[in-house]
Computed example of a mutant assay.
Amino acid sequence: MARTWQLQEAKNKFSEVVDAALIHGPQIITKHGVETVIVLSYTEYRSMLLRQKPLAAFFRESPLVAYDLDLTRDTSPLRTDISL
């Protein structure tokens, strides 16, 4: 179970944060009440990396692959009637 630690507490108990990450999973660190970073075991990190798919595989497996999408670029001239 992920535990949330305030930054100052995590700094003071870093060994405990690391042990908790190894035993219980990712540990969330907050800074000024905002979730900022996560401490997780190297094994879990590597596992996440190995589960990633290349972008090309993502598109090949997309449900939209069966549709004939028009991906041609619009070549119309730029609009000049817009003032910024």
Rank of each mutant, 00 (worst) to 15 (best):
K53E: 14
V34E: 14
L84A: 12
S41K: 05
V65Y: 03
L71M: 13
I23S: 08
D70P: 04
S62F: 06
S83C: 05
H32W: 02
K13D: 06
A2R: 11
Y67C: 06
Q8L: 13
S62I: 12
L84N: 14
P54M: 02
A21S: 15
I38Q: 15
E61P: 01
L50F: 13
P54K: 03
Q6C: 00
D74V: 13
T43H: 13
S83K: 10
L64C: 06
T36Q: 15
E44S: 14
E44K: 10
R46F: 04
T4A: 05
L7C: 04
A20E: 13
A2C: 07
Y42F: 09
S83R: 12
R60D: 15
Q6D: 15
Y42E: 10
D70I: 12
T43Q: 15
G33R: 11
S41P: 03
F58Q: 09
E44R: 13
I29C: 06
T36G: 01
A56F: 05
L7H: 10
T43F: 06
A10H: 01
L50S: 11
S83H: 10
R3W: 00
M1E: 10
H32P: 02
E16C: 01
I28T: 14
G25S: 08
L22K: 09
S47A: 12
Y67G: 00
A20N: 14
V65A: 12
K11D: 01
P26C: 08
H24C: 03
F58T: 13
L50A: 11
R3A: 02
L78C: 04
D70E: 12
Q8R: 13
E61D: 15
F58H: 06
D68Q: 10
T36I: 01
Y45A: 07
K31P: 01
L22Y: 05
S62M: 11
Y42P: 02
L50I: 13
I38N: 09
Q6T: 02
H24S: 11
P63K: 15
R79E: 12
L64M: 13
T80A: 06
E61L: 01
S41I: 05
V37F: 10
P63N: 14
L55K: 07
K13T: 02
I38R: 15
S83T: 13
Q52Y: 03
S15M: 03
K11H: 01
S15Y: 03
S76Q: 10
F14V: 02
F14N: 07
T43E: 15
W5C: 03
F58I: 14
L22N: 11
V18L: 08
I23E: 12
I29S: 03
V18F: 04
L69W: 12
G25P: 02
